[in-house]
Design a protein around this nucleic acid. Structure first.
Length: 876
RNA sequence: GGGCGAUUAGCUCAGUUGGGAGAGCACAUCCCUUACAAGGAUGGGGUCGCAAGUUCGAGCCUUGCAUCGCCCACCA
């Protein structure tokens, strides 16, 4: 009984976990065979993270490609792993400690690191379990972590190699300092946000004459204690005479020079700018040009330090600003206050306002590294999909800045630099400590430093492994455009540096998942759709298909809605029931059917569906090779639902036995085509159907994953495809007439179809049973010309075939009205076509095929107009 | 300031050698027909952002404009 194998609704929960376990423990995700290799590395999610829609999209796309390639006989290796995510993880663990009444700083570095490792062991597999729920066919045997021993070795090797080539240096520069995390950040970890602030104009008195002033404008008055100059434009007539003189910084005993510098914009503010080289990157440059001193006035938490006047020491930067404004006003230094909107850098992670801060950090000299990486993309050794992202890549790489790689946190790869205890200026770069008289640099490396090595560190580098030999370069990298600069560009750069070869051939860059209004999903807004909730409720396949169907060629951001997911859920159920129908038909079968062998069609509609299947195989294969997931998904939807279910299944119900082999074959082929998108439901059906006693398992794999991707053969009969299109048009029109006449098909209806052409008559005669079945008309006659009918009837024309449907009664007025409306539509179409055909230029210049097509259309419409006119005339 | 992308049905979006304006959802009407009501059938709905140009012909190519979104730069 079919009920034993198929419930009437697909229940994902009954299948997904069990199937995934079978797959994983059955070794189904391991590379096998002798086919060409296809490898990917997963963009490692944060080890403490939780699965969000971005992961779901990213993993879905990769899994579609992995399964597609596996079905095509490739040796697929997809390497999973997680990222240690320095600052993010450190924050999470520190927060947890604080909730327990202690903190990282209280317990100290070693104890803190023990805590993070413990945390990693407790929660590190949460995200990997969640990835499993998506159905990801990653090979867990090769799972990696960016701080495991292999990655550690890779990082150290890489650092030393760069250092030896003089590409890593230590320097004192203005960096982006986060006072909350007390660490430097790289430029791309800073997000600029618009803030409503003020522009304060204040007077600095001349040393030579306290009654004269120069007025400077600033948004950050608290940095004035670090001022070591005032800059004006050399051509500015207002200040020309003051250049070279000195002014006294209020509340200090320091006199600072007025210098001329072309960087100054005469039209902004007062045209004179205070120069604070230790707290502003531009001022740092100006200071260098004019040999100005650098004075830090804050500590690492942005608290005013001993270089500020006593009364401000110990205040944080904002308290200080507030007090200082009061004081400046009281003491007559404040000239005016303007409202000023400006962009302020913030920490991408914590949101804290960045303090430009002078400090000693490690940098990579990127300019010397990028050229091969630029060339690799220019020469198309690496291709970006969509191609337009190359522009952003070149823009970034051609204006590359040095990469600040040191971070003043504890969780991460500690920098392999050892300072002599009694002389910190003396240091050695090495994997291990040179001796007890050395101490290691306390800083760790930027998380992206290890991520940059991911495509080869996961395959064993720096050791020469078989994995590397077999799977590097990887075939494809799938990622979002938001980390193109953070990650993709650096993998290419470092891949070429270490491996002398690109890390991947193709980069597929997808959009970001947003809510239906295009807004970023965020917990505070409350518009988050949690992928795990979706999987619980509707199954992983519904989520996957929904996401893939939105993943269009242009790589636009994806606006996700519950409605879209529900539609996909309905589709999974449709596939389930299509198969359930096949299963039911098998019950009546007499001989075992081999579902993998292409059967010879017995009936016309069987031949038709096989041809349509071929078209679908070809289109879907093309779209997947083209990374056009939405188009592939659309095609599969159209074929499965509209062609197979709506037309084919309904069409064979009158000859199920004859069509059974084709039905079964088409069903299995369709399952394979759908499998990359919907691994669970297709496997569930596969296993169910395989168990049917009338299925021969001789050529059947025990899992759909090991099946062979369908191969398209030549279309057998193009005319037949057209004939069925004509028939379906006709059926639609007849149904429309029945519906419009508001007549029940429980009555015995009589239909006459007329066409002068004998081939068409033959077609109609052949299709009569189908037409009767699908329109529920009892009698159907085929004629060369529409007969005179003197009983109530309704009439129309479709694909130039005249339709007459006898009715119990008819409303002549509305019937006439309907025909006239149809006539006017046809006349409009005819008019448009005729306009073209009477245009000499069109006839001369348009391709003959186009002209021919238009002529034929016009002829058809003329014929239809004639039919309708005749029909209307009968009412006269 | 520079760059990229978007603008097509009520909503979300497809639409490449330029030649028929389409899908899903939503909506309306009818139908529990033995695969599926998470379903079936039928239907309504669009001057393809605006303007000009190229062309026999433009949703598609060129130019300009408008609106929205994102990225980079950061005038203190």
């Amino acid at each position: 009984m079919s009920e034993q194998r198929f419930s009437n609704v697909y229940q994902p929960k009954e299948w997904e976990t069990q199937l995934y376990n079978e797959w994983e423990h059955g070794g189904d995700f391991s590379p096998v065979g002798t086919g060409p290799s296809f490898s990917m590395v997963i963009p490692p999610p944060n080890v403490t993270g939780e699965l969000h829609m971005g992961h779901a999209l990213n993993v879905t796309i990769q899994d579609i490609m992995a399964r597609f390639k596996r079905l095509n006989g490739f040796r697929v290796l997809w390497v999973p792993g997680t990222d240690h995510a320095g600052i993010a993880t450190q924050n999470v663990v520190d927060k947890a400690l604080q909730a327990r009444g202690t903190s990282a700083s209280e317990i100290g570095r070693d104890a803190f690191l023990d805590n993070v490792w413990e945390w990693k062991h407790t929660y590190g597999n949460r995200i990997t379990k969640q990835i499993r729920r998506l159905g990801a066919s990653v090979d867990w045997h090769y799972e990696r972590f960016t701080m495991d021993d292999g990655c550690k070795q890779a990082v150290t090797n890489h650092f030393i190699a760069l250092y030896k080539k003089g590409l890593i240096y230590q320097g004192e520069y203005i960096v982006n300092w986060c006072p909350k995390n007390k660490t430097a950040l790289s430029d791309i970890e800073v997000e600029y946000k618009e803030f409503k602030g003020h522009l304060w104009h204040m007077k600095y008195p001349l040393t030579s004459d306290k009654n004269q002033f120069i007025c400077v404008a600033t948004t950050r008055p608290e940095t004035m204690f670090g001022d070591t100059g005032v800059a004006v434009h050399p051509d500015d007539d207002r200040y020309r005479d003051l250049i070279g003189q000195t002014v006294r910084v209020p509340y200090t005993e320091r006199d600072i020079p007025i210098v001329a510098d072309r960087h100054v914009d005469q039209t902004f503010g007062s045209g004179a700018v205070k120069v604070t080289p230790a707290h502003d990157p531009n001022d740092f440059d100006i200071g260098n040009r004019h040999n100005l001193a650098r004075i830090l006035v804050m500590d690492e938490s942005a608290i005013m330090n001993q270089n500020a006047p006593k009364q401000y020491q110990g205040l944080d930067r904002y308290q200080c600003r507030k007090q200082l404004i009061k004081d400046l006003q009281a003491d007559g230094f404040l000239v005016k206050t303007e409202d000023h909107v400006h962009n302020v850098g913030t920490n991408t992670r914590s949101g804290e306002v960045i303090e430009p801060y002078l400090s000693k950090q490690w940098f990579i000299d990127m300019k010397k590294l990028t050229q091969p990486a630029i060339d690799a993309v220019k020469s198309k050794s690496i291709t970006f999909v969509p191609e337009r992202w190359e522009k952003l890549y070149f823009e970034w790489m051609e204006n590359i800045r040095d990469w600040c790689i040191s971070r003043q946190i504890w969780w991460g790869h500690q920098i392999p630099v050892w300072y002599k205890k009694d002389n910190p200026d003396e240091y050695i770069v090495a994997e291990c400590s040179p001796g007890d008289d050395y101490v290691q640099d306390p800083d760790v490396l930027d998380t992206w430093f290890s991520s940059a090595l991911w495509p080869f560190s996961t395959l064993g580098w720096p050791n020469k492994t078989d994995l590397l030999a077999n799977y590097y370069p990887t075939a494809l990298l799938v990622t979002g455009y938001d980390i193109l600069t953070f990650w993709v560009s650096r993998m290419i750069t470092m891949g070429l540096f270490n491996m002398d070869n690109i890390p991947f051939n193709h980069v597929y860059i997808h959009g970001l998942v947003r809510d239906i209004h295009g807004k970023k999903m965020s917990k505070s807004v409350g518009n988050v759709i949690n992928p795990l909730d979706i999987i619980d409720e509707h199954g992983a396949d519904a989520l996957r298909f929904g996401l893939a169907a939105l993943c269009t060629k242009g790589g636009q951001d994806i606006k996700l809605s519950m409605e879209k997911i529900q539609a996909s859920r309905n589709f999974t159920n449709k596939i389930w029931n299509f198969s359930r129908f096949a299963d039911m038909c098998l019950n009546d079968g007499t001989n075992p059917i081999d579902p993998m062998t292409r059967p010879t069609p017995v009936t016309e509609i069987d031949g038709w569906i096989l041809d349509r299947l071929n078209q679908t195989i070809e289109t879907v294969t093309h779209h997947l090779n083209d990374y056009n997931f939405a188009a592939a998904a659309d095609e599969l939807w159209e074929f499965t639902w509209n062609q197979c279910c709506d037309w084919y299944v309904e069409g064979i119900k009158q000859h199920k036995a004859e069509s059974l082999p084709v039905l079964v074959f088409v069903c299995f082929q369709t399952l394979i085509l759908l499998h990359p998108f919907m691994p669970f439901v297709t496997e569930a059906i596969w296993k169910n159907l395989s168990k049917h006693p009338n299925i021969s398992e001789d050529h059947l794999m025990d899992t759909i994953q090991h099946a062979q991707w369908p191969v398209a053969v030549a279309i057998e009969n193009n005319q037949r495809i057209k004939d069925f299109e004509t028939t379906f048009n006709l059926i639609r029109e007849i149904r429309h007439l029945i519906k419009t006449a508001n007549v029940s098909t429980k009555n015995e209806l009589t239909l006459t179809l007329s066409h002068p052409d004998s081939t068409t008559q033959t077609l109609l005669l052949n299709m009569t049973p189908l037409i009767q079945k699908l329109t529920k008309v009892t009698y159907c006659n085929v004629q060369s010309h529409a007969p005179e009918v003197d009983v109530p009837h309704t009439q129309s024309v479709a694909s130039t075939i005249e339709i007459q449907l006898i009715l119990p009664n008819v409303d002549v007025a509305s019937e006439k009205n309907r025909l006239e409306k149809q006539l006017s539509q046809l006349q409009q179409q005819h008019h448009n076509l005729n306009k073209k055909l009477t245009n000499e230029q069109f006839i001369q210049k348009a391709p003959p095929a186009v002209v021919e097509k238009v002529k034929k259309e016009a002829d058809n419409i003329t014929s239809e107009i004639h039919s309708i006119e005749t029909q209307i005339a009968k009412f006269a």
